[in-house]
Structures are given as structure tokens and as C-alpha cells.
Amino acid sequence: MTTTTPPTLAIPGQLLGPASRYQPGPGTHLHESNLHASLVGQVHITQPARALGPAKRLTKITPAPAPAELPTLSVTPATQLASAPSREKKKREVLPEVGNVVLCRVIRITPRQAVVAILVCGDTVLEAEWQGLIRVQDVRATEKDRVKIYESFRPGDVVRAEVISLGDQTNYYLSTTRNELGVISAVSEAGNTMVPVSWKELMDPKSGLMELRKVAQPQ
């Protein structure tokens, strides 16, 4: 049993392999120390990233190999049926998770928070629109008490933010407390797309006027 390789195609509930040899990835679940599929699709085995460069000489006793050494098994749903080529490529729904970097648009601002609509999660465009909230204390890491929401975001801005909590019933809680997070695209009051000037200023290239924002570091 332990020597068998996992199947290439999986059906929910199908046994994929023992948990002592594989790590559970997306589309799988653990049951009685065995990995089972939880989706219909193809099974992928991802080998763990090997340590770069020559391994250090062991000068002290290390604990047993970390579980991260094991290859990860995941099941990805079949995206397109060969029998139905006309059918649009079906995307699987994705949910924002804690730690994900998302792109969102500011809907409205209040002195305490900015309400945003989450549009993109990681690399995937979301099907449904999820609402997020950037609270005034999550805008930047320093001088939190001097943050003013209207000097950081305006409605219509596109913001890169990180999910910090699933939040309450309606909102995900987002944060822009890192350099690379913040406003990435905004239009000025005159309606021109602005360019970043500093970490808290954007400039309208036509009129030369400055506007205050929590600007994301260009990448």
C-alpha cells in the first residue's frame, strides 16, 4: 500500500496516499492519517524546494526532518472539457484568505475607515465582489495616531492591500502597513491619472498639483 503511487485522476473521497509520505495541498483533506481527495480533478505532486547551494556541515544535532521536506499532493479541477470545447473555461471560485495580497477599489471613506471592494486576489480575478475594510490603524505602521483616512485614500483609488482578518459578517479586514502596499492607481480632482512622487504624495502630471495618499512603492 505504501509503495503505490497516487492516481492521476481523483474523485472526492478517493485515497491518495499516506500522510507520512505526502503533505496535503489544495483539494485534498486528511482522514485517519491518510490523504483523500476532496475535489474532482487531476492529482499533482509538487516536490519541495531543495535548499540552495551546498548544504552546511552539520555541527550539531538537528531534530528530525521537518515535515516541509515531503512532497505536496494537490487536486486541481479539470478546467476545460475536451468534449465541450465551446464551453467557456470555468474558473474555480477563490476566496480571499488571511495573508493574501489583494487589489481593491475604494468605495467610500469615513474618518475611521475606508470601505473597499476586493477585485483581485493573488493572481485571480474574483467572480463575486467581496467587501473589505481598511481601518485607520491599519493604514501605515508608524505614527498610527496621526493617520487621516482622507489623506490616505479617496473613493475610486485602486489599492494593493493585505488581508489581515476574515473580519465581521460583511467585511474582510485589510491592511496597507507595508511599503509595497497602498494606492497604486488614482485620478486627481481634475480627472487625470496621477504619478507617485513620494510615499505619501501623488502628482497630477498635467496641473502639477500634489495630492496626499498612502502610496504603494512601485515595483
Binding site: 483539494g27 483533506h29 474532482v40
Partner: peptide, 11 residues
Amino acid sequence: LADAGIDCVDT
């Protein structure tokens, strides 16, 4: 449900 890609422990 399986067609929709919702995780199930079994069919």
C-alpha cells in the same frame, strides 16, 4: 457539488 468544485470528504 463535485462539478462546482466545492470540497467534499466523499461522494
